[in-house]
């Protein structure tokens, strides 16, 4: 095994463990925003999409890069916005009538 593989593997395993630790503390009430927020995080694949766009020199490469960029950008933008939309609805006190978009309590 190369050094690179060992170090990547270490990062992967430790991240999974950190993930288990942090996520097991999220209350069931927030599981939908959690999943949607985690969804936004896997949008980090946009970094990979940008790098393949940077190395593309053939028609096939451009097509793959374009689709990957569109997929990843949709994942990031949509994921964060919809998670925020959900979380701002969780309020300690109900909103006063006539005011539907106030800040979270």
């Amino acid at each position: 095994m190369s050094t690179q593989l060992v170090s990547d593997l270490s990062i992967f395993v430790l991240s999974v463990l950190v993930g288990f630790e942090v996520i097991s503390k999220v209350p069931a009430m927030l599981h939908t925003p959690l999943m949607s927020g985690a969804n936004s995080i896997h949008g980090v694949v946009i970094v990979g999409a940008m790098l393949i766009a940077a190395s593309a020199h053939t028609a096939a490469g451009y097509v793959l890069a374009f689709v990957a960029m569109a997929f990843a950008a949709m994942n990031v933008a949509g994921g964060y916005v919809v998670t925020d939309r959900m979380l701002q609805m969780f309020r300690r006190r109900p909103t006063p009538p006539g005011k539907t978009d106030g800040p979270a309590a």
Binding site: I11, S15, V16, G19, F20, M35, I41, H42, V44, V45
Partner: peptide, 12 residues
């Protein structure tokens, strides 16, 4: 970045 982000989502 991809490894860590992906691993966190995998755990979740």
């Amino acid at each position: 970045a991809l490894i860590i982000g992906g691993a966190l989502v995998g755990a979740s």
